[in-house]
Amino acid sequence: MSRLAEIKRFVLDEFAPDVVADDLADDFDLLDNGIVDSLGLLRLIAWVGERYDIAVDEVELTPDDFRSVEAIAHFVDSHLPLLAQEGLR
């Protein structure tokens, strides 16, 4: 499963289990549309940190980084540990 698909799977499982992946556009605004609320945002950030081994506590992050599936994937891409980026892990 691609990273984008994996993120989408998590978002749907966690916040909209009745929705199929094709019905969630990559750029759909999860925050403005009330899919991910402020407590949900914390769960999402914690999952991203754990799943991709990103020290989310130490990274400067804003809600915009988690606004859509696409934005989350971009955030992950730019914060992956160096080794993982080089494909060594």
């Binding site: 909209a16 009745d18 929705v19 969630l24 759909f28 549309n33 009330g34 899919i35």
Partner: peptide
């Protein structure tokens, strides 16, 4: 209707 549409 799905929950995305409803919440939107």
């Amino acid at each position: 209707l799905n929950s995305l549409q409803l919440r939107q």
